[in-house]
Design a protein around this nucleic acid. Structure first.
Lengths: 204, 204
DNA sequence: CAGATTATGGAGCGAATGATTCAGAATAGA
DNA sequence: TCTATTCTGAATCATTCGCTCCATAATCTG
């Protein structure tokens, strides 16, 4: 269903190139990454890069889009857990694992790279990422409110407040990953935070 | 005690120029902010800028330092509190207030702006900021370890771990401030988080 | 006043930037 | 094989970059 198009075939793996590019963007930022750094790292010429991805801003936008979806997927899997505690635990731990991935040229956490405003691409990266995160937050809040109605949370704990707290932790873990914290450190922090969240009677 | 030096006096306010420069750097990052943007926004010529601040990296570093000092001051005041709980509370609440300042052209929070996302080959921004924050983190950790030795914390709570958690919350609050959260929301989150931190017997 | 000192604006340097052009190479369908 | 199509590498375009030079202006001390 993906018929080889006419013409000379591309001599490099587009997906792999995209991953390398994302890695560079994550390390140096948008303006901090030059097209020459990209072509050198990808091992292709400038014209090949432009033919495959368009302008630098287009390439950046595509990199952001392809990786931002991973976070949404984590939220989606997390809220499917049966209890509020399991939801929070899975969300934080899987996110930490994702933030600190270094294998296969994975770019790490792109959230703060996305904050850049001056891309001037036709695609508004900032707005896109902000919207995606709003959706994720809403999903978590909805799930915790549902848990509250099910009596999973002590009456002193408002679901919205707990969602805000988890979200704050999530952002903090992301930032610390970017500052160089190791996976073990962040997992320890996340685990510790989870133990502090009060649950209804069944435990502690 | 600040005798007017010989020579032609500077025609612009150095501190105000530094604030403007910081504002631009926060918005566009280091490599995203050109010297021409700076001179245009500051209303001065290139030679004046270089005479007053040195290179672009020097100007950037000075801008970072001047704002990092605010956070250091908060940490310093916080660790002077008599109890661990008071330390954490003061740290988080005062930081939130600082993060959400909007007066006098305050450029917003340093740590989660575009500053962190945009580096250059000649200046490793992340490493520089991380280094400045390490001092604050060490101060907090030392204070909590002291509290642990004084028996203020339950034996199940390691001081280092608690410090890491508070630090993670701090980063998260900063990011959420940058994303547009209001002061009231963040204060509510911080207050809620503080209530979850266990204390030794004297208070439930 | 004269001499020393410092700041200013404008011009412009060499290097790097994002992006394009173009002749040629590699494929598909006919 | 021939034509249409697509990709490649090298050269290179115009622009912008960080930064400096320099003649001049404004202030100091004496």
């Amino acid at each position: 269903m993906a018929p080889r198009p006419a013409g000379r075939p591309r001599a490099f793996d587009r997906d792999e190139a995209l991953r390398h590019a994302a890695h560079l963007f994550w390390q140096h930022g948008f303006s901090g990454t030059s097209t020459r750094m990209l072509t050198a790292a990808l091992g292709i010429s400038s014209s090949s890069l432009y033919a495959a991805f368009g302008t630098k801003a287009d390439l950046f936008a595509e990199a952001i889009r392809s990786y931002a979806l991973r976070y949404s997927a984590i939220y989606e899997r997390a809220v499917a857990e049966p209890t509020a505690a399991a939801v929070v635990e899975r969300l934080l731990l899987e996110s930490v694992t994702e933030f600190t991935r270094t294998d296969e040229g994975h770019p790490g956490c792109l959230t703060s790279s996305a904050v850049m405003a001056d891309t001037s691409s036709t695609f508004d990266v900032r707005k896109y990422v902000a919207g995606l995160q709003r959706t994720d937050e809403a999903r978590l809040r909805g799930r915790l409110e549902q848990a509250a109605r099910a009596g999973e949370l002590p009456p002193t704990v408002q679901a919205t407040m707990l969602a805000d707290l988890v979200q704050t932790l999530w952002q903090g873990l992301s930032t610390r990953a970017e500052l160089g914290a190791t996976r073990e450190e962040l997992i320890a922090v996340a685990t510790f935070a989870i133990t502090l969240i009060p649950q209804e009677s069944t435990n502690s």
